[in-house]
Design a protein around this nucleic acid. Structure first.
Lengths: 149, 149
DNA sequence: ATTCATGCAAACGTTTTGCAACTAT
DNA sequence: ATAGTTGCAAAACGTTTGCATGAAT
């Protein structure tokens, strides 16, 4: 439903590492693996889940503080978005894809992504009408998914 | 921009108190004042702000736990909405008005309300197309307000 | 009399911070 | 050599809970 730009993880990672260097920051395996975990998981992961996957799946030691610092860093570079599904812990997702919004099932907490041209355009219009310089938007629909009904 | 139903606070409060009684709960000055504070403030207030206004402006003793319990109670009755502007603390607003969404200025944190027919309708369509039983939605536009540009 | 609501303080879960050791440049 | 990065533990923050007291019905 939501398309990713065609790009292999390898080229994406290389690109990212160059950016990090250019900005005067340092690369690390922690940064690499957080990126990899977000890239290869369709799920929207919490900081704790990211740290757990790093440890169990990739045997990479990763403190929770590092995860929080790194996703914040990624957010500032605009390659990660965070979202609040209302259960206390923020979820993080890679921002490779076209802009999309979320539908959250209030029964099973599952997150569906969608992207809708009409909403995208209308949001630009609303901002313009209010003399608002638009940076971003989120739209989240709450309801009950097909399975849970 | 966003209209309120025509109703005085007094009649609204009386109505609310009847509902509370009917449901088998008890009325209290804390409930009354939280309602009053939300009613007469255009701002979107955090739990702490509500408690502070109660104490300073109305000389009503109000523990922070009571505020949290009460706004949760109000949310369940569907007369209060909570919103996360991304700075840690949830904000609460009375749900008297027609459904509306928010524009948040990332410079001054001011919250503007708007309501847009096209977005309302399209969100219903999106849910329907995905076999999603719609309960509610939020849309938040982030940008820079006229004053801050 | 019953049951709900309250304030306080303690507990909780998530996120942030200080720090000393470490690593990339 | 320098400056960013890490894991750990402690702290901070918003929110929730247990409990004894108090208030509404």
């Amino acid at each position: 439903m939501v398309q990713k730009y065609e790009e292999s993880f390898e080229s994406f990672l290389e690109n990212f590492k160059n950016t990090v260097s250019k900005l005067g920051f340092k690369n690390s395996i922690q940064k690499d693996y957080i990126l990899k975990i977000l890239y290869f998981n369709d799920e929207h992961l919490s900081a704790e889940q990211i740290a757990n996957i790093a440890k169990s799946e990739y045997k990479v030691d990763m403190g929770i503080a590092t995860v929080y610092r790194t996703v914040k860093f990624f957010e500032e570079l605009n390659i990660v978005n965070s979202l609040d599904i209302g259960d206390g812990a923020k979820r993080y997702e890679l921002n490779l894809s076209l802009h999309h919004d979320h539908m959250i099932c209030t029964s099973c907490n599952k997150i569906l992504e969608f992207n809708d041209e009409v909403i995208e355009k209308q949001q630009i219009k609303v901002a313009k009408d209010n003399n608002f310089y638009l940076n971003d938007h989120i739209m989240t629909i709450y309801g009950v998914c097909e399975k849970c009904q």
